[in-house]
Design a protein around this nucleic acid. Structure first.
Lengths: 120, 120
DNA sequence: GTTGACGTGCAACCAAACGTTGCGCGTAGG
DNA sequence: CCTACGCGCAACGTTTGGTTGCACGTCAAC
């Protein structure tokens, strides 16, 4: 348990702008820094830097087309990212569920002494 | 579609240190800035600031106990965060699946003209 | 009660990340 | 040729994650 997390992938996906960029790239099936910035509240430069980050995380790949630089999402890598998101989510969900169960058990058995503190 | 995301929740959970703090708090059922910093590679001050961020996001609540400040995870809010994680994951997963399906369809029907570009 | 140790909060400071503007260069197209 | 578009680079400002140092309250032991 305590799923091994790729912090690079997480931080890449952690930024709201980058998430929207990925969304956009998925919907449009690809795009350039300029085309992405058209639909985002940030400048082309900012988008370009984000694309660089996403590229280093392996989430997107670029191909030069004339004077354009066209980016596409790396399906496999995004799938990995999604897997990690749901993994962490599942872990927390499990912990929450376990806590709730314990709480109910304590309430039922009426044990005012047991407080759930195991060690330091 | 395009699930509405609470950027405050996301960014709260986006930081690796904060994720570990939440993990720790869940496992131990609560803790203080000092106790958390013992198991983390950062100082008590840094942890304190993170606790502040988590507090503003509603993910933890503090109760003063003597000279200690004991923090506990807000189950409901963390559950919300988990929901958002899996929501985004599900969205991307769906898009990926759709793309893959389209790609296969194109390959099967052998249409060299259709390129999937709808508009700008 | 005094004294010391522990836990906190506040302030100053540093580095990295996100964002901006301005500039110069290559390339496509009238 | 010359305009306009798309891009990269550099300088700069601001927010964020992190550190150190210090002062204050509280618990406990003497």
């Amino acid at each position: 348990m305590t799923v091994v997390i790729d912090d690079d992938l997480w931080s890449a996906v952690g930024d709201p702008t980058r998430r929207r960029m990925l969304d956009q790239l998925l919907v449009d099936g690809g795009g350039t820094a300029t085309s992405l910035s058209d639909h985002l509240p940030v400048t082309r430069q900012a988008v370009s830097k984000h694309l660089d980050v996403l590229g280093r995380a392996g989430l997107v790949h670029a191909t030069a087309v004339g004077r354009e630089r066209r980016y596409r999402v790396d399906d496999a890598q995004l799938a990995r990212a999604v897997a990690q998101l749901s993994a962490v989510g599942a872990t927390w969900d499990a912990r929450l569920r376990r806590i709730k169960t314990i709480a109910e058990a304590i309430q039922q058995s009426q044990l005012p002494k047991t407080e759930g503190r195991d060690h330091a």
